[in-house]
Amino acid sequence: MSKIGVLAVQGAFAEHEAVLRGLGAQPVELRERKDLEGIEGLVLPGGESTVQGKLLTELGMMEPLKAAVSSGLPVLATCAGLILLARRLENDPAVWFGTLPVAVRRNAYGRQLGSFTATAPFKGLGNVEMIFIRAPVVVSTGPGVETLAEVEGRIAAVAFGNQIGLAFHPELGRDSRIHALFLERVREAGQRLRL
């Protein structure tokens, strides 16, 4: 049973935990540095990226997690999580993990269009329902970044090595295939974080 750390300092983490449990994984809530011990994968949920980034730093989790992701720890990042991973933010000087070579625009669909649902092809999975909530968008990608999905000509999902970044919320729908894909990568990586 894969032990998956789910960042639980702020945001929509409970829904990710429910999907992971349903797939036979063991989610562990990451609230302080000691919670990182032994995790085999990481989920960075939606929420408020600035708050999450500051809390990760204050709680002493940012540096060990950044080092682990850079060393190959599999990560699934949704919405705010994508912003945390991005190497550059188009409309914000902050950089948090900076491990995913993409540029991201926060709140790319504007506050008026706050939330919407789309169905679009996801590489290797076929059509997937995508729930966007004040979503970011990937505006450019660096070498080695694979586009997994586009919605209305905008990049909605990317992969780079061990990292999967999504602008939408797969945990809010009924389709668990993206989480299953992530867990497959966790099993293949066979890594365990040691502090």
Rank of each mutant, 00 (worst) to 15 (best):
P93D: 09
L23Y: 03
V128G: 00
W96Q: 08
A94N: 15
Q26T: 14
R88K: 15
L56H: 08
H179S: 00
L181A: 07
H179V: 00
R177N: 03
Q191H: 11
G142F: 07
V158Q: 14
E129G: 13
A80G: 11
L89V: 06
R87G: 05
V102E: 08
A68Y: 08
V43E: 07
I164F: 09
A18D: 13
G153Q: 03
A18P: 13
N107P: 15
I133S: 00
Q112M: 05
M61P: 09
G98W: 15
S140L: 04
V151S: 03
E129L: 00
G173I: 01
P93A: 05
R192N: 02
T119W: 00
V137A: 12
A180I: 00
L193S: 03
V9D: 12
L100E: 11
V186W: 03
N91L: 08
A8N: 09
E188N: 13
A118V: 07
S140E: 14
A120I: 05
P45H: 11
F13L: 08
F182R: 02
L100T: 15
R88W: 14
H16N: 06
C79I: 11
E150I: 08
A120H: 04
V95L: 10
V51L: 09
E48S: 01
G47W: 09
A67I: 04
F182K: 02
R31P: 07
R88L: 06
G72A: 10
G173Y: 01
P93C: 08
R194D: 09
Q163H: 06
L85F: 08
R134N: 07
N91K: 15
S49C: 07
E58W: 06
D175H: 07
K54M: 10
Q191R: 15
A149H: 14
G24A: 10
N107K: 01
L166T: 09
R111H: 10
I83K: 06
G60C: 06
K34Y: 14
E184V: 05
A14R: 13
V69W: 00
L195A: 13
R187P: 01
G41L: 09
M130R: 01
L89I: 11
F182P: 12
S115G: 01
V69D: 04
L42D: 02
L42E: 09
L59D: 13
P170F: 03
R154P: 07
G5V: 13
R174H: 10
R33G: 10
L42I: 12
T119F: 00
N127M: 00
G53P: 02
L125Q: 00
A118Y: 05
V128T: 02
M130V: 01
L89E: 05
H169P: 00
G11I: 06
T147Q: 14
V139D: 06
R21L: 14
A149G: 13
P101F: 12
L172K: 14
M62C: 07
V43T: 05
A159V: 08
G72W: 03
P74G: 02
L65N: 06
S140D: 13
